[in-house]
Structures are given as structure tokens and as C-alpha cells.
């Protein structure tokens, strides 16, 4: 759950609407409750998209965060 909190906090730092998708479930990346419904596990593929004036930056930051595999904070 802690990786999801980092995703939510990072998404919240942008003005854009940010979404994370797993399969057919596309959720608000700023909501920890919504992110939890993804049931995301290490190694799973997620899509990120954003709409707004800082959308590119938001996606870039989130890809970087998730790509780092949340170094240092451990799973769950």
C-alpha cells in the first residue's frame, strides 16, 4: 500500500487529472482508495495517462517513480 500512497502523493502534486489503468480498470491516481482497487502487484503492467497543462510532466514523474520500483520503501 505504501507504493500506492507515493503514487497518489506524486499525482496530487500536479494540476492535471491523472489516471492509472490496469486492464479495464482506469482509476484516479490522486485517490489512494481508487488505486487500491487495482490490486496491483510487483511486476504487473500499468498504464498512466493525464489531461491538463502539466500532463506530460505528471506522466513522466509517475513513470519514473514506478520504474524505480519504489526503492527503499519495500513492498505493501
Amino acid at each position: 500500500m505504501r507504493p500506492l500512497e507515493l503514487i497518489a502523493r506524486t499525482a496530487q502534486s500536479f494540476r492535471s487529472q491523472v489516471f492509472v489503468t490496469r486492464g479495464t480498470n482506469r482509476v484516479d491516481a490522486k485517490s489512494l482508495l481508487h488505486l487500491l482497487t487495482l490490486g496491483a502487484e510487483p511486476g504487473m503492467e500499468l498504464d498512466i495517462d493525464a489531461t491538463g497543462d502539466d500532463a506530460n510532466e505528471a506522466v513522466e514523474q509517475l513513470v519514473k517513480l514506478i520504474g524505480s520500483e519504489f526503492e527503499g520503501i519495500g513492498p505493501a
Partner: peptide, 8 residues
Amino acid sequence: LRGLENIS
């Protein structure tokens, strides 16, 4: 994880 997913 599935428990948390289900609850949320």
C-alpha cells in the same frame, strides 16, 4: 492485496 482490493 486481494483483500485490500476487495474492500476498497
